[in-house]
Amino acid sequence: MLEVRGVSAGYGTAQALWDIDIDVAEGEIVTLVGPNGAGKSTFVNVVAGLSRAWSGSVVLDGQALTDLPPAQVCGQGVAIVPEGRRLFPDLTVTDNLDIGAFHPAARAKRDETYERVSSIFPIVVERRNQRAGNLSGGEQQMVAIGRALMARPQLLLLDEPSLGLAPVIVEQIFDVIREINQTGTSVLIVEQNVVEALELASRAYVLENGRIVRQGDATELLNDESLQKAYFGM
């Protein structure tokens, strides 16, 4: 469903991504792993329309997203859970979710989607009138994923959802991502938490210094010796 071809991008004159090809098939969980500064967030932001690609193309179900403004990318079925969550801290939990349902197609089905999100994350109901900024990190991550789901995406982009969370919370979040995927949403998840991400995904890409250096079946990469040396210190 998502086809990224030859994408280069950067900031000012500093290039951050070189010639990236990535595919996500319908119903798949794909992960993009790599160290800090590799260009993972830059890539996610290009797909979401928040950064412009210098060259190359991003296509979702035959529709070119490459030069669309982010609002329209969202309307085409891509929702982002940004790095560091970036909830609207002074807005209530419910208001944060409503922003997720902002684009017209999502707004029309807002109540129905809200039911679904609250069954996945009961805390969005329990904490509905609290300022999002007052929630714990794990709760914020749940609301951030809930906000993205309110947009009714076909493709969910997650930028380091495990960042700053305790291992048990990470496990919980990853279980939910699996569950969301099983109801038909494709997932592209960016992680530094390599082992967890490879266990979750079916396929993986390894990004280093802005270039894809490895790709393949997630279990294969998980058992790959050179990768184990580089990333898990084994």
Partner: peptide, 15 residues
């Protein structure tokens, strides 16, 4: 209110 707090993410959700 979303724009006041984070215009970039507001944009990403269709505003």
């Amino acid at each position: 209110r979303a724009i006041v707090e984070d215009p970039e993410i507001a944009r990403a959700y269709g505003i």
